[in-house]
Amino acid sequence: MDHPFVRKLRHGARLTREDEVILTRLAQPVRTVSARGDIIPEGSSSRFLPLIVEGWACRYRLLPNGKRQIISLFIPGDLCEPFGVLPRFMDQPLAALTPVTAALVPLSAIGSLVRHNPRINEAFWWDLLVASTIEREHVVSLGRRTATERLGYLFCELHLRLEMVGLVNGLSFDMPVTQADLGDVLGLSTVHVNRSLQELRLTGLISLRGRSLTLQNLEGLRELSFFDADYLHTSILFHSEPMAGRIVDPRE
């Protein structure tokens, strides 16, 4: 199976097979972190770009009163820092929500690649654009969507992002995070998350069995949560029918 990092960047540029080999070598896993462990603690020096190879991770802020806000969710194929410039130190910790395998990519290696390869340069800038728009939509959800709309929007977005890296089965995908994690992403209590899950289930929009989440009515869920996939800049068309989970690239 192709590396998730390569699968993701294909949506941002027309990579050659040689480009993909280079990117795969760049993203070799170098460390594993157990669930709930810090991949990079707050305040540590920043010399590498963390890349998630397996598992789910997050960037978070912990307030003095013990409350946590998850700033970003990271899935396989995601760089956890912008590729252009690294801060001198990590002002927010990066943690594993599940067992994680990560690559720590030297910024110098990426810099050399993008200077000499226009296709890889385009792919990295696209990746930065997508990461930025995801953060902006997260702010919109926190400020203007109801609890149920926030949850529905997150599920639609995760389905799209996971499909880009080949980690969905039609309209179903693995949802390994807890309701408490979802609450910390969405600015909700666990009670509110549970109520929103029940509402989405009762209306037939989703089903959840164990860790497997199925979007039973993708178009209905998108309509409910005001989800428009254009902000992910994929240049691809997604179909809502369960048997049509395949990504179609109109450039082909």
Rank of each mutant, 00 (worst) to 15 (best):
M1E: 07
H3G: 05
K8P: 06
R14I: 13
E20C: 12
V30L: 10
T32A: 05
D38H: 14
E42F: 05
S44Q: 10
P50A: 06
L51N: 01
E54I: 01
E54L: 03
G55N: 01
W56S: 04
A57I: 10
P64E: 12
G66D: 10
D78N: 07
F83M: 11
M90K: 09
D91C: 10
T98E: 04
T98G: 02
L104C: 07
V105F: 02
I110W: 02
V114D: 07
P118Y: 08
P118D: 03
R119C: 04
A131Y: 01
I134P: 00
G143W: 05
R144P: 00
A147D: 01
E149P: 00
R161H: 05
E163G: 15
G166M: 14
L167C: 08
L167N: 08
N169I: 10
L171M: 14
L171V: 09
D174E: 12
T178I: 05
G183M: 08
G183D: 03
L186F: 05
L186V: 04
G187D: 06
L188Q: 05
T190R: 15
L202C: 00
I206G: 02
E219S: 14
L221D: 01
S225P: 00
D228L: 13
Y231M: 06
L232P: 12
T234F: 10
I236Y: 10
H239F: 15
P242A: 04
I247L: 15
P250Y: 06
